[in-house]
Nucleic acid binder design. Sequence first.
DNA 1: ATTAAAATGAAACCCATTTCTATTGTGCTT
DNA 2: AAGCACAATAGAAATGGGTTTCATTTTAAT
Lengths: 128, 128
Amino acid sequence: MRLTKGCKKVLDVLESIHELSSAQDIHGRMRNEDDKAPGLTTVYRSLESLVSEGLVQAVDLGDGERRYELVKPGEHHHHLVCESCRQSVHLDQCLIAELEEGIRHKYGFQVKGHILEIFGICKVCTAK
Amino acid sequence: MRLTKGCKKVLDVLESIHELSSAQDIHGRMRNEDDKAPGLTTVYRSLESLVSEGLVQAVDLGDGERRYELVKPGEHHHHLVCESCRQSVHLDQCLIAELEEGIRHKYGFQVKGHILEIFGICKVCTAK
DNA sequence: ATTAAAATGAAACCCATTTCTATTGTGCTT
DNA sequence: AAGCACAATAGAAATGGGTTTCATTTTAAT
């Protein structure tokens, strides 16, 4: 599968932001710079294919708005999300990967995927 | 805080189901049995207070629909959700609780809460 | 019984996402 | 280069949880 124009533009935006961004954020940014940037529908579709390509990961913070983020192809990571400033820190390792084998043994369950996000107060906000 | 009628009915339904159920599910069931059971708004409000009381936990499976489940007061647990039959198995311990101290040290981040759900194929469905 | 506060129901509203339909762009064939 | 088929796109409308609003009813306290 080849990258369409829409996908490329979405990737451009994601490269320039280092924050989790919603589809609407991304669309908004694109339209700010260029009135006839791809429409929202295209952004959603592009994100969908980027996610299935493993170039982008979707993150669910439980607020009803999915966020997206560039990742190293095929990898993923989780976040410490500050409830005060909403900034997020990446965890450098996935805590679940190591547990998969144990889960398979104990429950006979084949792990295919997972959701994990941690909420709290970050270092900076604690200091205040 | 005292339990209102609405809350009690919601609790009744949750006691009778042993599955994760959405607000709409719960409301539907209540209305099936009794045409003038509390309305959807009340169900949402009741769930909100039950959650904040720690009697019910909200579970986010990333599909935009929150599910609810009775828990022992103040406790919570995570799930192995089967992508084939949608049944879920409870994990008997929270994997995150043990990590909180490490996270505080390593990142200076005070953990307040988390989302964790694991997806895959359950024992029964694997056997098929 | 009176009155203030809490709870409720119905409808309106919000907003992310999806669907639908028509249009545009791209590459391929001849 | 012209025609053709199909993928990609836009934009509007529909969908669907969920939330808010507001008028009404219920509850609790005095």
